[in-house]
Design a protein around this nucleic acid. Sequence first.
DNA 1: TAGTGGTCTAGACCACACA
DNA 2: GTGTGGTCTAGACCACTAC
Lengths: 238, 238
Amino acid sequence: MRGQPAYQVIKRRIIQALSEGIYPAGSVLPAEKTLASQYGVSIGTLRKAVDELVSDGILIRQQGRGTFVAQHDNDRLLYYFFHIVRHDGRKVTPKVQLISFKSERASRDQAGKLRLVVGDKIIQITNLLSLDGEPILVDVISIEAARFKGLTQQKFVGRPSSIYNLYQTGFDQTVVKASERLRATAATALQSELLRVPLGHPLLWIRRIALGFHDDPIEWRESFICTDRYEYFSELSS
Amino acid sequence: MRGQPAYQVIKRRIIQALSEGIYPAGSVLPAEKTLASQYGVSIGTLRKAVDELVSDGILIRQQGRGTFVAQHDNDRLLYYFFHIVRHDGRKVTPKVQLISFKSERASRDQAGKLRLVVGDKIIQITNLLSLDGEPILVDVISIEAARFKGLTQQKFVGRPSSIYNLYQTGFDQTVVKASERLRATAATALQSELLRVPLGHPLLWIRRIALGFHDDPIEWRESFICTDRYEYFSELSS
DNA sequence: TAGTGGTCTAGACCACACA
DNA sequence: GTGTGGTCTAGACCACTAC
């Protein structure tokens, strides 16, 4: 099969089916035995392909029930994509407050991150996130307007669940992984006002690119965090 | 087998053998067929156990050559435990300069992190790390004296390779994984002098616990990083 | 050529969920 | 009870390394 292991080929075919919406978010896949015979491989090979998709966080296996397409919900968000915890280690679900929602043209920086051309239409959203009632984090989100056709401020604010859930269920944009770079910086006037810290206060500055099934950039996000009571966690192993 | 899957039992038995020094760092394990018959399981089950150890970064498979016990070398350090890169993404091997090497008694904080009692003997080491000739990072390392019997400043400075390699080859202390918490902070007098930045300059503050085979704390480390030209990277997926 | 890990098969049986 | 994923087997053959 094109010189590649069969399970890799199967894995890519399943990802293709997922990105084409054949198995929508939250739906159950056919049984593994069924899939194995559909793809013409043994159950062991099929399982190896699904194993990888599960460890990538794309599928979720539940013994006795079936294999499901992972859906962005609050638990998933907190576990995979929100790495801020209290100093004592406790995780808190953030409360999001919209600061601004604007249509813009991509700057050189934004275009580079989102693989666009300078001047392409983008939407820029600024949010203030609070944890336990305290303002802790300012998010500046940039997304390509063409990917999110029909997104309005009203739809954004009225979303029933997380932002990534809105991307997934409203626009077929599933964030599969993200890559973050962290720096320390001094609070600007706007940041110090929103986060209620002195001008120049040290903030953690996170720059994130969120990617889809085919490593296509879905969202570029910059976060500024007051780490006086909360901090970023990272596990180093594999 | 104690109500647990066989491959989990095998995995723990291999970890046990590794921590007892039966397979030293860098050595080759018996062939998988041999191991399978030694442990009385099929090749598939043995492979599943080894699969996990490989994905944990504890073993390294090389087709045609064998399976090896992972050893801390520069590549491994850079890949697993050193998450600082230049703004352009390039990885650089740090040059380490010793600032101080002191015998101390554990503070409440240090004792908590290393699971010791306040007043237990520890060694505290301060290093200045340079990248491309520029001082970028101050490390403050705390380790339990009893775990590193015979470690002197001379041995520390004269180590042939990385610090974790010294722990592993000199004291049978293999760092398997680490857990980091990040904050932003303002440079103190000592930090600003060493890193050549103004007093109060925003620094990235990393607090790391390094763990061994049995999740035992080996090292507690605080790092202070000037992120003007370098930054911390983190991949969010599984 | 011999020995290693890498892939793949075609089942069997177990644990769990649900009706 | 039926259907699902989870574990395990006992091989076969392939790809790679080293001699």
